[in-house]
Computed example of a mutant assay.
Amino acid sequence: MQILVIGAGVIGAAIAFQLTRRGHEVTILEGQGIAAGASGRSFGWINASYGLSPAHYHLRREGIAAHRRLDGLLPSSPTRWPGCMWFESQGEEQLRFAKELRAMDYPVEEWDQTRIKAALPQLGQSPETALYLPTEGAVDPGELAQRLIAASGGRLWRGIAVHALVETQGKVTGVVTAQGVLGADAVVVAAGTGATALLQTVGVALPMLSRPGLILKTPPLPPVLPLVLWGPGGELRQDNAGRLVMPTAANHQGDAAETISGLASLHADAAMTRLRALLPGVQCDWDEVTLAHRPVPGDGLPVIGAALPGLWLAVMHSGATLAAITAELLAAEIDGKESADLAEFRPNRFS
């Protein structure tokens, strides 16, 4: 089939990669640049220790496994698997969280202070206990998107914005661009926060929440953080270039703020204070702060699957965790194999 994928973020790139592996001819349409939206401004944490429902947890868990499979297919994968140390709370709250994870059969280890200090001697004040989540990983979704598109063999139309979808006798048959109409056998919308306006052109509803987020980065540093940290001061990791990466919201995963008040620099300065408390040996300041509008559908859950004949959707947060599994399942469904794992995430729930 000739398939158009709208959006060159990590979700669209992963879908294009899987579709070309199945023999489809794929064209990716992107109005700006590869990972120009949320994918290029992401914390990049791959995990399933956070979920909004049992089905959401299961999908995220499968997302980790799918990323591992993708590692085996993609030359020089940028994904790393350092695990995560969680010490956001102590005492009963930590015990409750560990019990909750084990009830879902999620791998978790309990570390005492001796083990914590051995793994992270650079911590300013080691907690008495922590949970280590060994299966969790990290990736720069923008870098992953670049590599997936390069490896896919699909065609990329960059700087070509899609203005509308074309519907013919109840089936989506192409897209409208400033240069004209481009036809296809199927269209996949993986356009993040831009999906709603496109879908309105064919009468498909997709409400979205406003979820802006700021991410700071430091200049490249020597290795100081061998795993992902999830502590009371926020979430923190070191990327492949050596830069420390930190959301300015202390609880980025659960952040439900609809707006960001005040200058971005003030938020970055406050987060940097928390970062230095976690790693007092860091001798630098932040040099970049980036705003992303995270694509969060109206009920918080991913939107994956067919919306109309010929039209498929893949809109969600977090793409870092869910890109690989979304691509596998959606590509299989386009080829006619429906997945029960997507039952809770169908687009028609907003009809």
Rank of each mutant, 00 (worst) to 15 (best):
E235P: 00
L236A: 05
Q238A: 05
Q238K: 06
D239N: 14
D239W: 03
N240W: 02
A241W: 09
A241K: 12
G242W: 11
G242Y: 05
G242H: 12
R243V: 01
L244N: 03
V245E: 12
V245K: 02
V245D: 11
V245C: 06
M246R: 03
P247N: 03
P247G: 13
A249P: 02
A249F: 10
A250N: 07
A250C: 03
N251Y: 08
H252K: 00
H252T: 00
H252S: 10
Q253P: 02
G254R: 12
G254C: 10
G254D: 08
D255L: 03
D255N: 14
D255P: 02
D255A: 07
E258K: 09
I260Y: 12
I260L: 15
S261Y: 08
G262P: 01
G262L: 00
L263G: 15
L263K: 14
L263R: 15
L263T: 10
A264V: 00
A264H: 13
A264I: 01
A264K: 06
S265H: 14
L266T: 13
L266Q: 15
L266K: 11
H267D: 12
A268K: 04
A268L: 04
A268P: 01
D269I: 04
D269P: 00
D269L: 14
A270E: 14
T273E: 15
R274E: 14
R274Y: 01
R276S: 03
R276N: 03
L279W: 03
L279V: 03
P280F: 07
P280H: 08
P280C: 08
G281E: 08
G281C: 06
V282K: 09
V282D: 14
C284F: 04
C284L: 03
W286F: 13
W286G: 02
W286K: 02
D287T: 09
D287L: 11
V289Y: 01
T290H: 08
T290C: 09
L291H: 11
A292C: 14
A292Q: 10
H293N: 15
H293Q: 15
H293C: 11
R294C: 03
P295M: 13
V296K: 09
V296S: 13
V296W: 07
D299N: 14
G300F: 07
G300W: 09
G300P: 02
L301Q: 10
L301T: 05
L301H: 13
P302A: 07
V303D: 01
V303C: 12
G305Q: 05
G305Y: 01
A306P: 02
A307Q: 05
A307K: 05
L308G: 07
